[in-house]
Simulated assay, not measured.
Amino acid sequence: MRAHSIAIPFAFFLLLAGLVVATAAGAETPAAGPLELKPGRERAVVAVVALNAGTEVTDFLVPYSVLNQAGAAVMAVAPSSDPVAFWPAASVRPDADFAQFDTAYPQGADIVVVPAVHDPDDAALKAWLQAQAQKGALMVSICEGSFALAAAGLLDGKRATGHFYEHENRTETFPKVRWERNRRYVEDEGVISSSGVSASLPISLMLTERLAGRDRAAELAAAYGVADYGPKHNTDAFNIGMEEITTALKNIAFGWPRAHYLIEVWDGVDEVNMAFPLDFAARTWRGSSAAIAAKAEIRTRHGLTIIADETGEAPGGARLVRLPGAPASAAEAAVTLASPATLREDFLAFIGEELGDKTAQFVATQLEYPRR
């Protein structure tokens, strides 16, 4: 399964439905001090990498947002300047392609963040990641971004982790890597890897502590409702068994009418708040998600240009999802998510009310998200 779709951890379900849509844990990751920047820099340069053909939305948007709030100079970087297709919905215009970034920052990035991408074997991506590592960048993967780091040979001989469902596949595909379970993130010799999609917040907060100090990290953790962003994590609590398979097949075969969730976005929308509802809604297996805006392109809180899937008024039958801080609107929302600190729990509760608690739990399991 090395040629992944963005729904890589769940390819088994895709095949079942006919759709296209371990080792023991090692020692505790030691506490690390402030990140040492490249000579002459007053703030960190962070490249959040995307593959134009497909990139996981939460893996990408969460570190982009949080590390901006940590004071870093964050760039959305892709092989070409063409729009990046997010999975499951929306697109983004990169800030720079690889060549433009290299011209602007010949010393390389201080941190390179690698989300799950459509093709971790992409030649241009591998070459660029290898070059950044050779320039001394701290390489960080979110969820199955670890496949891209491993494909580039950057995890050979090192401890690493990734999404729980792909552990055996990773172990077989990349036997030189010491793959671990029951870790939120693992650091080894200049590379940090993390577990499921939901690890995007904890690992971004850990990096914030290194860039801006513990107080700033704690402030952002409280704002986004993260009680603990340390490396402890119980991978064994997550499982794709018969109950999950039954839920998926039942929703695919009998989940009618299909639910279409429109996540409302606007100029200034917070990237973290936008990402999780897009992701959660698409993983119910009986509906879809999309970004809707008043115009074709909007600029997020930290300057990303997002290309909306739909514009204007929500079509009849669609379920409009209103995010924290949304401008006043006459359109009726199916759910209003009032607080970034409770957004994930609130939206899962909404899914449970609409589609049943088993579906809400199935969504959380896919993202390796530990519900309270």
Rank of each mutant, 00 (worst) to 15 (best):
A123V: 08
A217K: 04
T173P: 03
G54C: 06
V49I: 15
F174R: 08
A152S: 11
A11N: 12
G162S: 15
C143M: 08
A44Q: 04
R322M: 02
W266E: 05
I192R: 10
A25R: 14
A89P: 07
L37V: 00
A199C: 09
E144R: 13
H233F: 15
G352F: 00
I111F: 02
A25E: 11
R184V: 07
Y369V: 07
D279E: 15
I245Y: 11
A27I: 07
A22P: 14
H302Q: 12
R214I: 06
A349S: 08
F362Q: 11
A78P: 00
T55G: 05
V20A: 15
A124V: 04
V66A: 13
A218S: 14
K232R: 14
G213A: 02
V84D: 04
A282N: 09
E144T: 15
R41M: 01
L155E: 08
G303W: 06
A364V: 06
K158L: 11
D119K: 06
G287D: 00
V57D: 11
S146I: 09
R258W: 02
L154A: 04
Q107F: 01
K232V: 13
L343H: 07
I298V: 12
S5Y: 15
Y229R: 02
A104H: 03
V57S: 13
L138W: 03
N234A: 13
S339L: 11
T23A: 15
W179S: 07
K126C: 10
S80T: 15
E313L: 05
S91V: 10
P30Y: 01
L337S: 00
M1T: 15
V113D: 04
P175A: 06
W256I: 08
R372K: 14
R41V: 02
A25D: 10
A104R: 08
R43H: 03
E264W: 14
L35Q: 00
L348T: 04
A275C: 09
E332N: 03
P115E: 05
F60A: 14
F98M: 03
V321S: 01
K158Q: 08
P202M: 04
A331Q: 10
A160W: 01
A96I: 01
D228K: 06
G108W: 02
N251Y: 07
D121H: 05
W285F: 14
L15P: 12
L343N: 07
P83I: 06
D82K: 14
A151E: 06
A341W: 05
S80E: 01
G317P: 02
H233K: 12
T103E: 10
P94C: 05
E180F: 10
R319F: 04
A99F: 00
A11G: 12
V177F: 08
G108A: 00
A76T: 02
V177C: 09
L61S: 09
S81Y: 05
A308N: 01
D119N: 10
P340M: 08
L367E: 13
V57H: 10
L51R: 05
S194L: 11
P115H: 04
I307N: 05
F238Y: 08
E144Y: 15
D95W: 01
V92F: 08
T173C: 09
G241P: 09
I252N: 12
W179E: 06
D357T: 12
L16W: 10
A227S: 12
W285S: 07
R170S: 09
L304N: 07
A11V: 14
R372L: 10
H167S: 12
V92H: 05
W285E: 10
A73F: 06
A131M: 05
V226N: 01
S80A: 07
E264H: 13
